[in-house]
Computed example of a mutant assay.
Amino acid sequence: MRVNTQSVNFNVDQELVNFIQRRMNKLEHFYDRVVCSDVYLKVQKTSAKENKVVEVKVCVPGDEFVVKKQCKTFEEAVDNATESLQRVLLKRKSKLRAHI
């Protein structure tokens, strides 16, 4: 799967990009028709500890899913976002099977 990672107002290190790629590749186990995904990393300028925002957009044929998570670290936010996407993709897969 092609994963486009974009960071807003900071430079992302290669280790984080590799982590995101591994997590996003796991989504193909749940739904094999994922075309591409875009991951946006943002740091909000607030005094709160949970200021890391990850927004993931996944493109599948005929639809597009967007999940946004805010956590203390980017790794935690990516994990939470991929868990949410797993549920969404499994739900879509079961709906498609029901129509066959």
Score class of each variant (00 low, 15 high):
residue 1 M to A: 07
residue 3 V to P: 01
residue 3 V to F: 05
residue 3 V to I: 13
residue 5 T to E: 10
residue 5 T to H: 02
residue 5 T to S: 09
residue 6 Q to C: 07
residue 8 V to D: 10
residue 9 N to C: 08
residue 10 F to H: 07
residue 11 N to I: 11
residue 12 V to P: 05
residue 12 V to H: 01
residue 14 Q to V: 07
residue 16 L to P: 08
residue 17 V to M: 08
residue 18 N to V: 03
residue 18 N to C: 00
residue 19 F to G: 03
residue 20 I to K: 03
residue 20 I to C: 05
residue 21 Q to I: 06
residue 23 R to F: 01
residue 26 K to M: 04
residue 26 K to V: 00
residue 28 E to W: 00
residue 28 E to L: 09
residue 28 E to H: 00
residue 30 F to I: 07
residue 30 F to Q: 01
residue 32 D to P: 03
residue 32 D to H: 11
residue 32 D to A: 09
residue 34 V to I: 15
residue 34 V to P: 04
residue 36 C to Y: 08
residue 38 D to Y: 06
residue 38 D to G: 01
residue 41 L to I: 03
residue 41 L to F: 07
residue 42 K to V: 10
residue 42 K to Q: 13
residue 43 V to P: 01
residue 44 Q to G: 04
residue 44 Q to T: 12
residue 46 T to Q: 11
residue 50 E to F: 06
residue 50 E to R: 14
residue 51 N to L: 10
residue 52 K to V: 08
residue 52 K to I: 02
residue 52 K to G: 02
residue 53 V to R: 07
residue 55 E to M: 09
residue 55 E to P: 01
residue 59 C to F: 11
residue 61 P to E: 09
residue 62 G to W: 05
residue 62 G to K: 04
residue 62 G to A: 11
residue 63 D to T: 13
residue 63 D to E: 13
residue 65 F to V: 09
residue 65 F to A: 08
residue 66 V to L: 15
residue 67 V to M: 06
residue 67 V to A: 11
residue 68 K to E: 15
residue 73 T to G: 03
residue 74 F to G: 06
residue 75 E to S: 12
residue 76 E to K: 13
residue 77 A to M: 05
residue 78 V to H: 03
residue 78 V to N: 04
residue 79 D to Q: 05
residue 79 D to V: 06
residue 80 N to V: 05
residue 81 A to F: 07
residue 82 T to E: 02
residue 82 T to Q: 02
residue 82 T to S: 08
residue 84 S to Y: 01
residue 85 L to E: 03
residue 85 L to I: 08
residue 85 L to D: 01
residue 87 R to A: 12
residue 88 V to H: 01
residue 90 L to R: 11
residue 90 L to G: 02
residue 93 K to L: 12
residue 94 S to M: 10
residue 95 K to G: 09
residue 95 K to P: 00
residue 97 R to Q: 14
residue 98 A to F: 07
residue 99 H to D: 06
residue 100 I to N: 10
